[in-house]
């Protein structure tokens, strides 16, 4: 299950979570937003193409959208990049956008003409179309 070389030093941990903290802590959670003043690469209305990347590590860019073009609907603000954070690489903070793709762009002529996808994407997943 665990390959050689993957083990790392024991991470220093805080004390175990106490039972009486469950309700208050879980009711707040922990937003993944990053408080960083970073300029967005895109704005609502821009047309973009999802990059054709095929990393062997973690990514949140699904295969079915790679190489497809869509439109920025909304800028959600700044978040850490999963591709980096899954591998101890730090937050690499950047903007996340809601991007609209038409069903025909993704699946071709057999898709319903008006249907669409709304998918959240990081700056690093997008190029100008």
């Amino acid at each position: 299950m665990v390959e050689r070389g993957q083990r790392c030093k024991r991470v220093r941990i805080m004390p175990a979570l106490a039972a009486d903290m469950v309700v208050p802590l879980f009711a707040v959670g922990s937003s993944a937003r990053v408080d960083a003043d970073i300029a967005p690469k895109f704005k609502a209305g821009d047309t973009v193409t999802a990059r054709n990347i095929n990393p062997t590590g973690h990514t949140r860019l699904p295969r079915y959208l790679r190489g497809k073009s869509g439109t920025i609907e909304k800028d959600h603000g700044v978040f850490g990049l999963p591709d980096s954070m899954a591998h101890g690489g730090g937050e690499t903070p950047q903007h996340v956008y809601c991007v609209r793709f038409s069903a025909r762009e993704v699946w071709g002529a057999s898709a319903a003409p008006r249907d669409s996808f709304y998918v959240d994407m990081w700056d690093d997943y997008l190029d100008p179309a």
Partner: peptide, 12 residues
Amino acid sequence: VEVRVWDSTAEL
């Protein structure tokens, strides 16, 4: 009717 599918890829 337009069907909109929301694929939750990020932390929204």
